[in-house]
Design a protein around this nucleic acid. Structure first.
Length: 611
DNA sequence: AAAAAAC
């Protein structure tokens, strides 16, 4: 079903080779001041991307890598206009040494999809179930909130990015994208409460890549320090696998834009990462520990940072990363809030995150997207009473039944969550002994093993993955048909994240939980959550819930049920004299405004936001 | 209590 956006896209081969694309558009040089402009007049109201605050235009004369005296300058500038239809040269940091080497060497990131998922069709690889998002409530607040868009066509991201969006088979933006992208493109700081699987990565990557392309040739150059990398954008995430995944996605979005994306995380040889950094980096995706290491070695400087994105911020704090994050953001050479643009993503919005937001953000827009669990009609949740001693045989029954039902192993991946690393090892072992193709992922396995396990699972080679919470959040694994909570987590939010690994990409999903006395603290929130999701709540679970004390293990921070959090600035204690700040009437874009669907108009209140 | 994360 083509949208106006896809209609307007020029026809291009899905796997368009480098030569083909470049040739197609090389002849149309677009001068810088006309780049990033819509071709049709009606979209002229689109927000103008924010020019980096600290950037002057006085350096414009130094366009291209001229200082290096490279003979390739001319070529590169020719190509820059053509490669993606607009400034494709990347930032100052693209040290590819000329178009011919830099361009040709860029491996096609879309090729990987075919390599790692041979068992599956290419119909949808977004991992996002768009229809399930139609009814997700969205709430924004803050001063002069840029209005959301309904299609990618309304967002002016440029030809190269549009082509990549198309290659990714994204047809329409998810709710978080519809709101966050215009906000980010307008140069605003953003505090977003959104779950993984909501399309967050693209929501912060698109504006960053677009901004880098637009401003790539302007602003001060980084000092010429040998072996020191000067990223323009930094994306921090809590786990290595999440960093890897963000990197893989960002590479797709940045393909043939000249924007270089590099990833740095622990557990892997640092030399390879150092070499990648030396080749030039615009966007650095990193876990905090490895980044601190790189900063201490003076191999990375943050002084050129224009964009900072923190993903899964609440998780990072849970994991004790706050000191390291504060060090990175506040005590190194990163430009302060207001100079850089900061995008903070978190599933929940407790006090600690509010403090972080107050310290890291400047005049931010608050965006809350409904919890994944609130709209997971496609996930059937089952809770079964299983004693600890019976868990293994019960799991085997489930797996046998799954097999008997003709569920093709390769198409129906099963993700089994356990509480401990030891438990993961022994369950994996036990499954293998009993003839089930299983592997496992947890923090005591080497990084190599972790990555291998994930690949093996994704490809369907071992369609059963036993995991600790390392895999609970953020990981986007298409085709997970069944999530088994072999051990239930203590926190209902973790449960929501875990079951969110299924029911993706338009497929229905099943989530089975093994419940017993050890989980009684979870009874009430679990029963409430299932009720909210129109799931059948077993009577025995309701009895457990009634027995457990009131208010225990309820969602903390006063979050309002459907959202992970709410904008604390709107609370009365912060209200003094704040009417001009938050009271202009465009604050709340109708809590349930998204229900109108993507094609139709958005809430009637929205257009006034620009007035 | 356990999980995650730099060497």
């Amino acid at each position: 079903m083509p949208t106006s956006w896809s209609d307007s896209m020029e026809k291009a081969p899905a796997n368009g080779g480098i030569g083909a694309t470049s040739r197609a558009s090389r002849s149309t040089y677009v001068p810088p001041h006309l780049r990033n402009r819509p071709s049709s007049a009606e979209t002229s109201a689109a927000p103008v991307p924010h020019a980096g605050p600290a950037l002057g235009n006085d350096m414009q004369g130094h366009v291209g890598p001229a200082v290096g005296g490279s003979h390739s300058v001319g070529h590169r500038r020719d190509r820059s206009g053509g490669g993606g239809g607009r400034g494709g040269g990347g930032g100052w940091n693209n040290r590819s040494g000329g178009w011919d080497r830099g361009r040709e060497r860029e491996a096609n990131p879309f090729q990987d999809d075919v390599d790692t998922e041979p068992a599956f069709g290419v119909q949808e690889n977004t991992g996002i179930n768009f229809d399930a998002y139609e009814d997700i409530p969205v709430e924004t607040s803050g001063k002069n909130v840029p209005p959301p868009v309904n299609t990618f066509a309304e967002i002016d991201l440029g030809e190269a990015l549009n082509l990549n969006i198309r290659r990714c088979k994204y047809v329409k933006p998810t709710p978080v994208q519809r709101h966050a992208i215009p906000i980010s493109l307008a140069g605003r700081d953003l505090m977003a409460c959104a779950q993984t699987g909501s399309g967050k990565t693209a929501a912060f990557c698109f504006p960053i890549i677009s901004g880098i392309m637009t401003n790539s040739q302007s602003g001060p150059r980084p000092p010429r320090m040998p072996r020191m990398a000067f990223p323009v954008a930094l994306i921090l995430s809590p786990t290595r696998e999440l960093s890897i995944q963000i990197h893989e996605e960002a590479r797709k979005f940045a393909y043939q834009t000249g924007v270089r994306v590099v990833v740095a995380y622990g557990g892997a040889p640092i030399n390879l990462q150092l070499r990648e950094l030396e080749r030039g980096v615009d966007i650095l995706v990193a876990t905090p520990g490895r980044l601190v290491d790189l900063l201490e070695r003076a191999r990375v400087s943050l002084q050129m940072i224009k964009y900072l994105a923190l993903d899964e911020a609440d998780r990072m704090l849970d994991m004790g990363f706050e000191p390291q994050i504060r060090r990175i953001v506040q005590q190194m050479d990163m430009p302060p809030p207001g100079v850089r643009q900061t995008l903070l993503f978190s599933a929940t919005f407790p006090k600690e995150i509010q403090r972080l937001a107050a310290d890291f953000l400047s005049n931010y827009v608050f965006l809350a997207v409904g919890r994944v669990g609130s709209s997971t009609d496609l996930i059937v949740q089952r809770v079964e009473y299983v004693l600890e001693t019976d868990k293994r045989s019960h799991l085997m029954d489930l797996l046998h039944a799954q097999r008997a039902n003709g569920v093709q192993a390769k198409q129906a991946l099963t993700l089994v969550f356990v509480e401990t690393k030891k438990g993961a090892d022994s369950l994996e072992n036990w499954l293998c002994i009993n003839g089930f193709p299983a592997t496992s992922i947890h923090g005591d396995r080497t990084q190599q093993e972790r990555e291998y396990a994930l690949r093996s699972f994704k490809s369907g080679k071992t369609p059963i993955l036993v995991a600790t919470d390392v895999a609970a959040r953020g990981l986007d694994i298409p085709h997970v048909a069944h999530v088994v909570n072999f051990d239930l987590p203590n926190d209902i939010d973790d449960y929501v994240h875990r079951i969110g690994r299924t029911g993706r990409a338009g497929k229905s999903g099943l989530a089975t939980a093994f419940f017993n006395e050890n989980n009684s603290s979870l009874a009430r929130p679990l029963a409430d959550l299932m009720q909210e999701a129109n799931q059948e709540v077993p009577a025995w679970l309701s009895r457990f819930a009634a027995r457990s004390s009131y208010g225990r293990n309820r969602r903390g921070g006063g979050s309002g049920g459907r959202f992970g959090g709410r904008d604390f600035r709107r609370d009365s204690s912060n209200r003094g004299g704040g009417m001009d700040y938050y009271g202009s009437g465009n604050n709340v874009n109708g809590g349930y405004g998204a229900s109108g669907g993507y094609g139709g108009g958005y809430g009637p209140t929205v257009t006034s936001a620009w007035d």
